[in-house]
């Protein structure tokens, strides 16, 4: 049963990585840039939700919505101020700018909210049979298999987002515009697509998803500090590359595999070395499939 438990918690962690990885992969697909500030948008989303719920006593759902709205605006602002002027610059210049934005967000959070860890409230529980005791999960097979509500909600949210996003990119006009821009910006512009607003929309969606990921992440691992987002950010970026950067199903696959591998490494190999195992698997996968699991291999023309 412990094996099944590990699989489920791995999928749950992987779902969070997948949601974050979506932000990376969409932005990479369309703007061809590594948005290193993405991990810190997660942190901002978690803080907004934390303050909305703990300090202003808003209902959790309103807190999450508020976080999504603020992160969406934040993402669009960052894109407009920092990345848009660099559209024609080298990718390295954009990368350094993204790192600058990341530093900025972390240090602004440090000033605004201090480095004292905040304990994120748990949303997903119900009153138990005994009114003083809250139940935060379901037990199956006589208590051998315990699934917390956070896990269930995380996996469900991830699936909903995946389906919605796939439908959005394949059916709607905006989604098609997005795909067109990621194929060829100049051709898309000739077809009457507003490339700037499409890129802005991509950042908006990615950042909104980051807010959701932030809330889910902090519900599962409730310590919230200004650097909360950096390591999950790096891992999710790894997940995006793992699955093939630029591909939406790839982000899902990469995220979930990465989560499962991480939990398995923690359980069966070593807690301290789990990160090393995760990265080692990534390296092996990239050597066998240099464009990631579901990435398209682009042949160079001479």
């Amino acid at each position: 049963m412990s094996f099944l438990n590990f699989v489920i918690s791995g999928i749950s962690l992987g779902s969070i990585y997948a949601i974050i990885a979506l932000g990376y992969t969409m932005v990479y697909g369309i703007a061809k840039m590594l948005n290193f500030a993405h991990g810190d948008v997660i942190m901002v989303g978690a803080y907004v939700c934390f303050f909305a719920v703990s300090k202003y006593n808003l209902p959790p759902l309103v807190g999450v919505l508020l976080a999504v709205v603020i992160c969406t605006l934040l993402g669009m602002t960052i894109e407009k101020l920092a990345y848009k002027p660099l559209r024609s610059a080298t990718s390295l210049a954009v990368l350094i700018t993204a790192i600058g934005v990341s530093y900025f967000l972390q240090n602004a959070a440090l000033l605004l909210w201090t480095s004292n860890p905040k304990i994120f409230p748990s949303f997903f529980k119900r009153a138990g049979a005994d009114a003083t005791q809250a139940v935060n999960g379901v037990s199956l097979f006589g208590g051998q298999l315990r699934i917390s509500y956070v896990t269930v909600v995380t996996i469900a949210v991830c699936l909903v987002i995946m389906v919605a996003l796939t439908l959005f990119t394949s059916r709607t006009k905006m989604g098609k515009a997005m795909r067109a821009c990621s194929e060829d910006k100049d051709a898309a512009r000739l077809m009457g697509i507003n490339v700037d607003s499409t890129i802005s929309l991509t950042f908006a969606i990615g950042s909104g998803l980051a807010a959701i990921a932030g809330v889910l992440l902090c519900s599962a691992y409730p310590t919230l500090v200004p650097t909360t987002g950096s390591m999950p950010g790096i891992k999710a970026f790894t997940a995006a590359v793992f699955g093939g950067i630029g591909s939406i199903p790839g982000a899902l696959l990469g995220g979930i595999l990465l989560g499962v591998i991480e939990i398995f490494a923690k359980a069966y190999i070593s807690t301290q070395m789990s990160d090393a195992v995760v990265f080692a698997v990534l390296i092996i996968v990239l050597l066998v499939k240099p464009a990631g699991l579901l990435g398209r291999k682009i042949h160079e023309k001479v």
Binding site: A82, A93, G100
Partner: peptide, 9 residues
């Protein structure tokens, strides 16, 4: 951080 971004811009 701000100096970094501004110089790059």
């Amino acid at each position: 951080a701000i100096v970094l971004v501004l110089v790059m811009l």
